[in-house]
Every structure is written in structure tokens, then in C-alpha cells.
């Protein structure tokens, strides 16, 4: 029995509206940026340089260059923004009562804020 099908491959000219909402755009935007920033960061710290060489003097050298300070700073902010926005759907999938969701999201935001502050302080301190 063949399924009755109305499969027509018509491309309708729907009036172009915006793609998705704000969180949709944030996740995709930070994600694309992170693909470059994070993979690049990993490449330099683990592949180009062996991980044994990335000691304190390596950090001092790396963060005396404006390029890497900006790179790592941007990496920090975009990564945490990406996690914060993308995990909303994840929390909603596994905590199904509204109170539990709010608590989990608040805890997550708290953690991300702490990490942001620690990371920013470390970077600014080291960059002088």
C-alpha cells in the first residue's frame, strides 16, 4: 500500500520575514563565530604548540599581544553567551515544571556570570 502523498516540491514565495527570534540569532551568530575562535584557540594551544609548552611564560607571551588578548576575550564572552542561550531549550527539555526550569536557569546564569567575571579579571590582570 503506497502512502497517499501530496508531496509537491513547490517553493512558495512567502514574504521574507526575519529568520527566527532573538535567541535563535544569538545562538547561530555566536556559534559561527565560535567555530573560528574556539577551533583556532585549540589549534594554537594544543596542536601548533604542544600542551607541555603552554606554561606560565607562554601565557605571558601570548597575552602581551593585543591580537590574542582580543581573541581570548572574545572567545570567553561569545562562548558563555552561546552556552547561556542554547541551554534554555535544554533545560526546558529536562525540567518540565516551570518552577524547576526557573531555578535551573537562574543557577546556570549565576554560574556563567561567575565564570565571566573570573575569566575577565584573569585576562585583564595578565594583559596589564
Amino acid at each position: 500500500m503506497e502512502p497517499t502523498t501530496t508531496r509537491t516540491d513547490t517553493r512558495t514565495r512567502t514574504r521574507p520575514g526575519r529568520i527566527g527570534g532573538r535567541s535563535f540569532l544569538i545562538i547561530r551568530g555566536t556559534g559561527v563565530l565560535l567555530a573560528v575562535l574556539a577551533l583556532g584557540h585549540f589549534a594554537v594551544t594544543h596542536l601548533v604548540n604542544d600542551v607541555a609548552q603552554t606554561d606560565a611564560t607562554f601565557i605571558a607571551r601570548r597575552w602581551s599581544s593585543a591580537l590574542w588578548v582580543v581573541w581570548d576575550g572574545l572567545l570567553l564572552v561569545t562562548a558563555l553567551a552561546h552556552v547561556g542561550t542554547a541551554s534554555v531549550a535544554v533545560v526546558r527539555d529536562y525540567w518540565t515544571d516551570p518552577a524547576g526550569q526557573r531555578r535551573m536557569l537562574a543557577a546556570l546564569r549565576g554560574l556563567l556570570l561567575v565564570l565571566l567575571v573570573i575569566g575577565a579579571v584573569t585576562l585583564l590582570f595578565a594583559a596589564g
Binding site: 600542551v51 606560565a56 584573569t122
Partner: peptide
């Protein structure tokens, strides 16, 4: 993300003392 949290914390050791950072960093190799 879970690793990232740990990583941010262990790199922040550098701001405390580069020696402490190097200490932890030995484990990475």
C-alpha cells in the same frame, strides 16, 4: 562547556601566581 568551566578556573590560577598555574599545568601533559 563542562570542560570550559574547569579550564577558566585553572587558567585563572595564573592571576594568583604563575607558579601555581605551572603546578596545575604539569598535569595537562
Amino acid at each position: 562547556f563542562a570542560f570550559l568551566a574547569l579550564h577558566i578556573l585553572d587558567v585563572s590560577a595564573y592571576a594568583w601566581s604563575p607558579g601555581m598555574y605551572d603546578d596545575v599545568h604539569e598535569l595537562y601533559s
